[in-house]
Amino acid sequence: MVLAPGLFAATAGEQDPRAFVTQLAAKVMETMTIKGVGDSERAARFRAQFTADVDLPDIGRFVLGRYWRGATPEQQQEFLKAFEDIMVLTWSSRFKDYGGDLRHAVTNVTADGERVVVVESKVDRERQQPIQLQWRLKQTDGGFKVVDLVVEGSSMAITYRSEYASVIQSNGGKVDGLLAAMHSKINELQAAPPQTN
């Protein structure tokens, strides 16, 4: 079902999903490329934007899947905190790679059920086929929140879920094994930020 963006504007206050995604990409890009800002300040700004626009607790619960219910409240909180750290460390460097030249354009907006809006967009690249993206947005009282990003047909939420289940499996079905692996990955990512080309 294809709907005009205007239709959503009425139900989501002032927000238009097309504008939400366009601004989200532009804001993040500006944060990652703005001059005269220290690395720690840049990282803090990215985290603030990322956590405001992405529904990390919901994604985290989906990613842990059936292990969420078996986990203690302490494990759940520890997982969500570690998941936020990994997401922020991972995605800040991915935006950085574009070096400010993000040719990102929304191509289509569709509804998936009553509460989910799918915004399709593409990132044009030099002499290569554009990267196709799908942003899955959820309506909340505070406006839209990203609940998944599908890159070239691969859902990031499903990929994390599959990967983390595999880590839990290889640790004898224990969530603590996953938490330990997450903490060591966070340390690794903080110790060795990616080389800027």
């Binding site: 529904d55 998936d112 059920g113 499903i158 879920r161």
Partner: peptide
């Protein structure tokens, strides 16, 4: 899709 399940939850 994850978003469906998430919104259901």
């Amino acid at each position: 899709g994850p978003a469906d399940q998430i919104s259901q939850k």
